[in-house]
Design a protein around this nucleic acid. Sequence first.
DNA 1: AAGCTCTATGCAAACGTTTGCATAAATGGC
DNA 2: GCCATTTATGCAAACGTTTGCATAGAGCTT
Lengths: 365, 365
Amino acid sequence: MSVTLKDVAQAARVSVSTASRALTGTGLTSERTQQRLVRIARELGYRPNPIARGLKTGQSRLVALLVHNLTNASFQVMAEVVQARLKALGYQMLLCIGGDDPQAESDTLTTLVDHRIDGLIVVPTGKNGAQLETLSKDVPIVCLVRRDDATDLETVLADDPQGAYLGTRHLIELGHKRIGLIVGRQDTTSGRERLSGYVRALREAGISRDDALIHAGHYVPETGATCARKLLDLARPPSAIFVANHEATLGVLRVTAERNIAIPDDLSLLCYEDMPWFEWHRPAISIVDNGARDLANLAVDRLLHRMDAKGNSKGNGSDGVREYRVGARLIQRDSCRRIDVPAPAKSSKSKSSSSKSSAAKSAKV
Amino acid sequence: MSVTLKDVAQAARVSVSTASRALTGTGLTSERTQQRLVRIARELGYRPNPIARGLKTGQSRLVALLVHNLTNASFQVMAEVVQARLKALGYQMLLCIGGDDPQAESDTLTTLVDHRIDGLIVVPTGKNGAQLETLSKDVPIVCLVRRDDATDLETVLADDPQGAYLGTRHLIELGHKRIGLIVGRQDTTSGRERLSGYVRALREAGISRDDALIHAGHYVPETGATCARKLLDLARPPSAIFVANHEATLGVLRVTAERNIAIPDDLSLLCYEDMPWFEWHRPAISIVDNGARDLANLAVDRLLHRMDAKGNSKGNGSDGVREYRVGARLIQRDSCRRIDVPAPAKSSKSKSSSSKSSAAKSAKV
DNA sequence: AAGCTCTATGCAAACGTTTGCATAAATGGC
DNA sequence: GCCATTTATGCAAACGTTTGCATAGAGCTT
């Protein structure tokens, strides 16, 4: 059907081996025949069959990216980045959607290695550590966004503690003292880390933590709405809300709209992770950018490094680093506002104590 | 490294051929050996090597989906649907992002057939018709969402004329007479078709077409904003805007927010294609759903049909139908409002003018 | 000019399957 | 109990590459 190496060899009156060597550019063939074969191959429209090649070499020029879904904006840009990078290097990306389901993840993983993928970037569910660990002996693997604690795999993570710290500090600098936090479940790393960043910023500013202001739940709009209601129903509601996830933000926005709460006049809103429409929303929503683009790029870098190392069989490509953290950064738009600072009181102490007492009071709510 | 068919055969003391036949279930082997081999294979953890198999059979169990991007919500759900369907059948989806760029599309296509994909669902750019046509001789292809006029390929399309008609009629039924349309470029099929549906609904209602109300442009937020401004700046601005694309909707929303135009009180807004946050937005945005889910499912159906036909070499699987249209449907939420019908006035004219003047007023803000 | 090293080529095996053909064993009809 | 049929198995070729080994010249060194 399609033109094979044999055809090229015949046309050039050389053996298949020479043809192969000439076209793969091993340098084991004379300049002349090399060029001649390249020319003939082009004329005949020869395209090497990756399957046959794969059978012999054990490689497929396929690299898989396994993410939870495609609705998450971060995963979208990651997929696009990974695809672009890989394509430039002659790899095809195999994009798989695991739905954050351990069973699906496990199935997909076996199918992928069956297909002899050359590398894998995976956002692990965290439930298939053993399998991942085993597979990593055959194929280079880099974990992305989440760490699977059961493994020693190289992992590229967002710097959630820092991001949450950055966001919270920003709100504090704007004068906010009562900052609501809607955060992910505490059995996830990101949930815990974002909370910790928030807490650290508060502590640093001498603001005592008020658990009534902290709500944890799934990363879905419903959670955002529920938590927002709880926060706004407080006797002393927060002047700012930090939503540690973009899905939950949807719920918060709905509630504020329903209650006619103006952002940022009545309430400042800061969100973790970007969505394309955030900057088109009025007010444009300020965010802490988790650096999805950088994360993806770094993951690809590390994977390529490992793949390369494997090819040259110089170790497993580990550079001794197990974990990479990609910095988050604050993107200020229009959803956070400086809070009115009353005329400077005479005693700086009274001010701070007042702020503290108010915090203490609110803790009772 | 991994356990091969030969290993299984040896363990069972049969030849590789028998092993192969037993495990692929050809029925050419005795019940007993069949079961015995299946058992042994499982015990040994045998997994057939799809590459070796592919070399022999010319199949890869890989099906590609080539879309423009992943930011478009429709493409997201399509990708998820296709992946789910294929996975259930033991295929791996190869998701590729072409960026609506003819060159990238062309490159990707050749890579894909090099990899001997078993089938392809593609959203064509429309510039590689010849190539697609050629490839379709080797591999079953179904076009999705867009038709490539240079080809005769089976194509699954949204029923844009009907969708636009449905949406426009809805607005008309709510009493709107001046309906702005922000639509795609007229050199795209969808742009033309959506316009035609709009025009048909107007004509049917006896409303004469006003070209000042119709704006065409790229499917990006900027376009939406620009067009919205033009519409609202009209001496007699529309009482409703039908945005024939979700990206453009972002721009429209920004403008209405900037100008303090209340939706749906001052202006009704209807959008083509859904986005996850539309129902969380306040007001929740009414849409014409293009049926992305149905489109994807139908495309998969058709592709499987063709693949099947090819396998059994009973023709090319064409059932004589070249084009499938998947119906659109209206999803009413809260962004469209019945226009005030004052107590049946003697002159219906005064009514429409009053509502219009209010819109005109807000447009000046 | 003999011996040597290089360089360029070819032969053939291998990668892990599937499959046509041949054959051996089992079955059945008489 | 013999031939014809069916059923189960094995052998070996094939799919399109890559690659170790062998070899034939070509070019140097003496």
